[in-house]
């Protein structure tokens, strides 16, 4: 039986909430359905633009976490 995918399924796929089996079927559907493929492309573009809005912690904060990771590691080994 051929499974038809809805546009909502594309959103689940975009955010990696589909199963491995569904992934395989969606990939096939994207290859054969131009409209679906076009919409998916639009969604991907927008998602990547959204990723630009993310903000990072200061390098001081990141370095502190790294120090903790190293020290905890050393203590765990002793």
């Amino acid at each position: 039986m051929i499974k038809t995918f809805t546009r909502n399924d594309l959103v689940r796929y975009l955010y990696q909430e589909t199963t491995i089996e569904e992934n395989h079927l969606i990939k096939q559907a994207l290859l054969t359905n131009d409209r679906l493929n076009e919409e998916y492309f639009e969604l991907v573009k927008c998602k990547s633009e959204m990723e630009e809005v993310e903000e990072g912690p200061s390098s001081r904060c990141v370095n502190k976490v790294m120090d903790i990771a190293k020290n905890t590691h050393i203590k765990a080994k002793l």
Binding site: R7, N8, L10, V11, R12, Y15, E39, E42, L43, K45, C46, K47, E49, M50
Partner: peptide, 19 residues
Amino acid sequence: INTALGRMRYALLNLRKRL
């Protein structure tokens, strides 16, 4: 879940359209 997915889809497409 379908409503949530639909809202997300429209949000992304709306954003894309505006950009």
